[in-house]
Design a binder for these strands. Structure first.
Lengths: 338, 338
DNA sequence: TACCTCTTTTAAATCGATTTAAGTTTGATT
DNA sequence: AATCAAACTTAAATCGATTTAAAAGAGGTA
């Protein structure tokens, strides 16, 4: 490995001068500066980030913790965050997590590496068991921002969310307004989306004794399997509309219902949440609720960068983005057979 | 931040003893060891990874460079690599790249951080312009393994690939054997898959003057758009079968052809490559070529770990996995209208 | 030439953990 | 009690870059 002193020796200066020169310090004569830089380039010198960070207290690295599932919703967020970070001279390291333990490992890694900041996207579990450890990160002067992690972020951690309860609410109400009276929900228990759905049931006095409440339906595959299950029911037992946790689930549902001969939206209306790219290409194009994930991502990274610049910034900010219904082809009036 | 000496002071030992104790060195008395560990735990001490790495020359970090596109093929690889790495005490940092410049940034980051090893999955561009810099990594004693990066890896860098030329070859031959004589290819120029396809054309004396060769078709969206374009052609002009670069493209094609009223496989047969999970759930289930990506991932990380353990290991190993046709529902005999 | 100022360079301390060689303690043996 | 080995503990050097205070050099003036 080529060290600073190797460069210094070849350029006939001391390591001190070399360091100063490479960092464009005005103490150093321009000629010397140029010479040192040239030598460094020739030797392909790259400073040891460990030593540098040890001294400067800056790693120029931001950790991004994100669920390790195939969902374009998250990859879009990741990409957006990376783009902004890079423009500002920071590197992003993605950390794909599947479990609380995974997440814990990364929290430890972040503290060990002393990253300059961290963003936690979504949460692996409903009860946020790592929250205390994450707060501890914040206590150790590592700024933290939550994005789409719905739980209470407290007064130390900024958060960026969308109004998912409202998303589910307007989606379910849309189905109701189309005349549907057997509206199912396929998603996650005890989550904002479910709350929004239940509020609509309450508002319109629909009571199913949970027979249309399908829990733990989160992926394309989950949706696909649920579709098969529903297809196996008697037609009279089936819901006439399904609100799903996200677009992946919705597409899984459509896919399997149609392949079982149950046409969408003629027999069953399906509504997603997220508005991923695919949802508008999909055939039939998916009715869904738009969640402005890219905007959220930009906001999150900006909050983080400002926090890094000014560590003792005021109280945490909690930002909630609004959502909007995108009506496409998978929902229609109940009983309407074109 | 809590430092080693803080722990040492509280445990009434010197930093040296504390360090030794925490690293389970047998020089230290068991009682002392226990006391130090207890104090460290109480104080929630996490060693400074920068200082540690600076001294020990080990970061316990492996960099994984992977294309930043939504393709389950890659996420499965990433997940598999992470699982094995973690079992062996290494952390993976993912680096999503979209361009050569992106990749270059990460190469620099790796050298700066002095990661213990790096895996490069696939290549962003056809001409591997960063190859020299990557070799330089290897020269700087950072072991490197390529996975699914088709270009020559040289004698310094291990590689794990699948036989993509054969994949395309058997897929195209399958279509030929079904009676198709207008077989299109939608994919990447100058790549193994295209070569395999062209070899089949040659073998069976098919000559289209490239009218069925569609270049730069790599994503679902690309496939979708191409489908629309083909649907707009006169039926006599259309190919009767399409071999696609990967399953995403294939599904995009099916999606758009069907939505334009061209049934698959009745009017056009479609064959993918990769065998992603979705391909078998999809309706119609996709005929494709299985690429054993998880096996490849396991092999890649194992090669890397062995190289890390034994830096001056013999010459580089180049491993190529075999592929196999999975016949499902999107291909059928030409002209057969059920 | 002597003196002073301004510019440029450098020696040395530092970041936090590890590790080796040297120092101290303990306990056994005579 | 003196001696010695074994068991522990610790001082100090080290990793590579940064940074401050001090030293050296250059140039100008009287």
């Amino acid at each position: 490995m080529i060290r600073l002193k190797d460069v210094a020796k070849k350029a006939n200066v001391s390591p001190a001068t070399a360091s100063l020169a490479l960092n464009d310090n005005e103490l150093v004569n321009d000629k010397t500066k140029a010479r040192v830089k040239k030598v460094a380039k020739e030797m392909n010198y790259i400073p040891d980030a460990r030593a540098k960070a040890l001294k400067t207290k800056e790693t120029k690295i931001i950790g991004l913790v994100i669920p390790e599932i195939d969902n374009p919703f998250f990859s879009e967020i990741a990409k957006e965050i990376k783009t902004v970070a890079k423009k500002n001279g920071y590197n992003i390291i993605y950390c794909g997590v599947e479990s609380k333990e995974d997440e814990l490992d990364y929290i430890t890694l972040f503290r060990g590496m002393q990253v300059d900041g961290a963003i936690f996207a979504s949460s692996v579990s409903t009860s946020d068991l790592n929250i205390d450890l994450i707060k501890e990160l914040a206590d150790n002067f590592i700024p933290v921002v939550f994005i789409d992690r719905l739980l209470d972020a407290g007064d130390r951690i900024d958060s960026v969310n969308s109004d998912l309860e409202r998303a589910a609410f307007i989606a379910a109400e849309h189905l109701y307004n189309l005349g549907h009276r057997k509206i199912a929900f396929a998603g996650k228990e005890n989550e904002f989306r479910m709350t929004g759905y239940l509020k609509v049931l309450k508002k319109y006095n629909l009571n199913y004794d949970n027979q249309y409440l399908f829990k733990n339906i989160l992926s394309f595959e989950d949706g696909y399997k649920l579709g098969k299950k529903i297809a196996d029911q008697l037609e009279t037992k089936r819901p006439t509309a399904i609100l799903s946790h996200n677009d992946e689930v919705a597409i899984g549902l459509v896919q399997s219902l149609v392949s079982s001969g149950i046409s969408v939206p003629e027999k069953i209306s399906i509504c997603g949440i997220d508005n991923i790219r695919l949802s508008h290409f999909y055939n039939p194009a998916l009715t869904t609720v738009d969640i402005p994930n890219k905007k959220m991502a930009r906001k999150a990274i900006k909050l983080l960068l400002s926090k890094i610049k000014n560590k003792n910034e005021s109280a945490a900010r909690h930002i909630k983005f609004d959502v909007s219904l995108i009506e496409r082809e998978t929902t229609q009036k109940v009983g309407l057979n074109i």
